[in-house]
Amino acid sequence: MAGATLDVDTEKLRLFIRINQLEERYRTLVENANVGIYLLMEGRIAYANPEFQNMFGYSLSELSQMSITDLIHKDDRRSFIERMNGGDWIRCRGVRKDGSLMLLEWSIAPLRYHGGFAIQGTVKNLTQIEFLLTERERLYRELEKLYKEIQKSEDDKVKFLEMISHEIRTPLTIIYGYLDMIEKGQNSSIEKIEKYVEGIRNGADRIKEVLDKIVSIEMIEEVCEVKWRKVELSSLVKEVVESLTSSKRRKNVNIRCNLDKVIVECDAEKIKAAVRELLSNSMKFTFGGHIDVSVSKYDKWAIVSVRDTGSGIQDIERIFERLHIAHDIKKHSRGIGGGLYLAKRFAHMHGGEIEVESKPLKGSVFTLKLPL
């Protein structure tokens, strides 16, 4: 009998030790869980693990004096209480000790505890998860937008190369035509030869203009130094106007100038190039009528305005894009594009801006603003 009693006591001891080991293991898991774990008795918080305490910012002693509904946003309390009895998952807004809100997901599990009724469960903070999901959606939309922009950029490059090919091939054809006439016309008069030479020169000028534009567009992407010096802006603009109207190809364009004397500090060559692009753009799309060019001061800005009576600009929101080829409202297009992109970049290098307004069949106004 004594041996049997000893065996029973030994087995009880083993069970006791095993139970203690399991309890210790369970306690360790609960204490180190990355979700909030709680126990409610009679509506009060009887236990909350460290994650629960950190989540709400209260100590265990503070939580033990609180009802679970004290941690729920006032507008969500009624639905929370109604769903607690169902032993369900509940999503609602929680309130931290500092008053900040978070989106929570509660698990509710009713049970018997020490002869009474209790509720145990977990709570997860979904705020970060919701943020990550929202951020993922935002990144997805940005990637989708970037993909479309890349596709559009590739299409623009193809159109750009086609336009370059056309813009170079056309004057080359003219040059070869005049050269053939000179070779075959042994008895041609001096006047005819001069006409042929003028045609060749105009064709060569056009090719040079196209090549210069391509080089400028590529070079602008590199680090570009601004060579600052004081410049009389009206003289600079007058020089640009004279250079563009001196060519016989431009002789039918009527340009009227009103140039006030304004001194600015700038890179003369870059601003000259910007003004040239604005004016040449207006000249391309103004068939008859006139162009008004003015230089003035307004507030802290030097203003260069180019106003034309052309037929207006199509896709006005895109005209400053790198490879965009401008069209007027009648869908005419001339040139290889990129000039207005250059002009705007040069303006930005000086802390300035270029603005544009356009009305169908009434013309456009380009305004270059430079800080004084």
Rank of each mutant, 00 (worst) to 15 (best):
V264S: 01
E137A: 09
G36Y: 01
L211N: 00
V210R: 04
S189K: 08
Q21H: 07
E42K: 13
V262R: 05
G339V: 01
L60T: 01
T5F: 10
A46L: 06
A273F: 01
T134E: 15
I81Q: 07
A274C: 07
L361V: 07
M163F: 06
G310C: 03
E51Q: 11
R345K: 13
I217D: 04
R307I: 07
L126T: 07
K152Y: 10
E42V: 04
Y38A: 06
G3W: 12
G177A: 10
E265P: 01
T367D: 00
Y38C: 09
W106Y: 07
G335M: 06
M55D: 11
N254K: 15
K330D: 08
I182Q: 08
L103Y: 15
I200Y: 03
I72V: 07
L323M: 15
K192P: 06
E191L: 00
I90P: 06
N258L: 12
N54E: 14
V226R: 09
E321L: 10
I291P: 00
G115N: 02
K208V: 06
P360V: 10
V241C: 09
K251H: 12
V241R: 05
I319E: 00
A326M: 15
L143G: 10
S79Y: 13
N187A: 08
I214C: 03
A273H: 09
H73Y: 10
R27W: 05
A109M: 13
I190K: 12
E355W: 04
L6N: 10
D260G: 05
R138P: 01
V262M: 05
W89A: 08
T5Y: 06
T245A: 05
F16Y: 06
K270C: 02
G94V: 02
E31R: 07
L179T: 04
N187M: 08
S189T: 14
L278Y: 12
G115R: 04
S64A: 08
V240N: 09
R93I: 14
G3Q: 13
L132H: 11
V231W: 06
L13C: 01
V253N: 14
H73V: 04
I263R: 13
V237L: 03
E269L: 08
L111D: 03
G43A: 04
G203F: 00
S364Q: 04
V8L: 15
K300Q: 13
F160C: 09
D75G: 09
